[in-house]
Design a protein around this nucleic acid. Sequence first.
DNA 1: TCATTTTCTCAAAGCGCTTTGGCTACCCAC
DNA 2: GTGGGTAGCCAAAGCGCTTTGAGAAAATGA
Lengths: 341, 341
Amino acid sequence: MNLKQLSQMLGLSQTTVSRALNGYPEVNRETRERVLKAVQETGYRPNKAAQRLATGKAGSIGLVMPTAPGNPTDLHFGEFLTGLGEEALRHDFHFVVTPADPNDEVGALKRLAVSGNVDALFVNYMRGHDPRLDMLKSLSMPFLVHGRSIGSEPDYPFLDIDNEAAFYDATKLLLQLGHRRFALLNGPMYLDFAIRRKNGVDAALAERGLALDEACVSHTAMTDEQGLLIMERILQLDKRPTAILCSSTVLALGAVRAINQAKLKLGEDISLIAHDDVLTLLKPENFTVPLTTTRSSLRAAGVRIAERLIAGIKHTETFPEQELWKTELIVRASTGVAPAE
Amino acid sequence: MNLKQLSQMLGLSQTTVSRALNGYPEVNRETRERVLKAVQETGYRPNKAAQRLATGKAGSIGLVMPTAPGNPTDLHFGEFLTGLGEEALRHDFHFVVTPADPNDEVGALKRLAVSGNVDALFVNYMRGHDPRLDMLKSLSMPFLVHGRSIGSEPDYPFLDIDNEAAFYDATKLLLQLGHRRFALLNGPMYLDFAIRRKNGVDAALAERGLALDEACVSHTAMTDEQGLLIMERILQLDKRPTAILCSSTVLALGAVRAINQAKLKLGEDISLIAHDDVLTLLKPENFTVPLTTTRSSLRAAGVRIAERLIAGIKHTETFPEQELWKTELIVRASTGVAPAE
DNA sequence: TCATTTTCTCAAAGCGCTTTGGCTACCCAC
DNA sequence: GTGGGTAGCCAAAGCGCTTTGAGAAAATGA
């Protein structure tokens, strides 16, 4: 069933039927009702590809899903997607998800953009001096960045959390509790958020004339396995740190396991603060010793980003183009006074 | 840059350029190379919507993502999506993901199908007597079901794991270890896999003249919170079960927490077997007491399903239309001899 | 009453691609 | 030298929709 058939059935022109469906004013009320009724009965749905071709709009948001054989599933991605979906649902939007090798994200994004089946693009996993930014700016298509790109002119629309402040505050808290030796379990070094978080830690330590020991800083994928491995290594250091900062509760999961295995008491022998993306599965309060965290909901970010992208497509974007969310520092039992030397 | 411009630039007709690009034989080798070079230089990409309209094919797989405000993110969905993506990447396919309220999956699926921007459909979270099946069969579009639908004629293409056998075997093992009182922490009752798993347990118990106590069977969302709650309740029963079966390691995560809190020893005071979807984050071997599991990789299923769907679209499907994967029963430390009465 | 506006409808063009069917050379064989 | 075959190219139709520009009918104003 297509427009032609439907209009023949009704004895109307395609024009009129199309207008009736799209809410144009120049259609008689009776006629419109007749059309709507016929649509109900026949179950007619306009062909999206044709609509897209004719209008240039398709009600869809494009995004690249980094994936490679063997790579672990990213919990954070799923949580974020849930947020996007929640909002897209309200507007009858859908996503076009292009899987891409993490090393070819710029290529994948370009293909997606020129393919002509998305109205807007979204990018995340931002890197320092991210090459995708120039490409996005050259396109005449709305886009939104989750995160930022240190080293690039901040003249693009983004939503980010204040990673530097989050880790500055967390470090400050630990300093106040008397800790002097710190470790940082961070995400991959090339990612923007990892850079900023480290900057936050560095800044807070510098104020006290302290610095991170290189042996106590790691930049890895954010899996619990990595957390375990690195923490095991760190715990074997001569002068082991008493304060641990983790870039994700997923890393913390492994780190805590290592701490337990070493028979150390979390919150007494060793303190830990993790960044909490509010992952459904991994609640910091559900750890045997509830974790102190810096918190910011990834899912909420997804909702907000979908909201802004859709507004951008409909040209109703009135929100500020750049948002920086503060994180909350929530103190639970994994932080305590530094043990005596 | 579109076909018309490109062909004018080359002094060729659109036909010839199109043919050159799509590998048709009736194009001179020289001409083809000239075209390919021009494509390189101009960065021309065919408009997908137009291609779709002209050919009816779009290189995309449609799927519905169940989501509702407040609903927890489903870890299993993400893991599966990773698998789909991994395979789609190899064939330059993408997904069109429509978020939908879990109560309107059939409607969402229909919209997706008639929208004309997917070549094939995929459905999961199958229910008993699933209403989507009739709809799918009436469509002339390839589709594939992950799971099955008990109560419906099995005349549709599917990939499923042998849930009944998995839980039959697991129960059998526990029986052999001397257990007599069982509990089952299952997924939602209306879902096919939950029904079959319960059937498996029932069958194994029946062989010994035993049966599940209704108070020891739960049907809930598969979150760790639910696992905790239910396990806490079960542990307070007068004659508490000594053997626990869990439909997911996520449920087991909560259940184990309850067991620990009750100061019971897993594998001694109480035994537990969980189904392991091989979630990246939740490895059964990483539990404090490694879990005995029935294992089948959700991600591998994703890869396989993408493979079959794409083959179906390209009309090269030669695989069996219906696949039933066996699960592995892997014994670790969470199962032990039943405690003396 | 006629001119003018308003209301409703339509035919046709166009979005960017693929594909059908036809056309022109050119070659070969008899 | 004619007929048939093949290689290589093209014009035009068509996919299903939206939108432009225009026209007929009805309503309005003087």
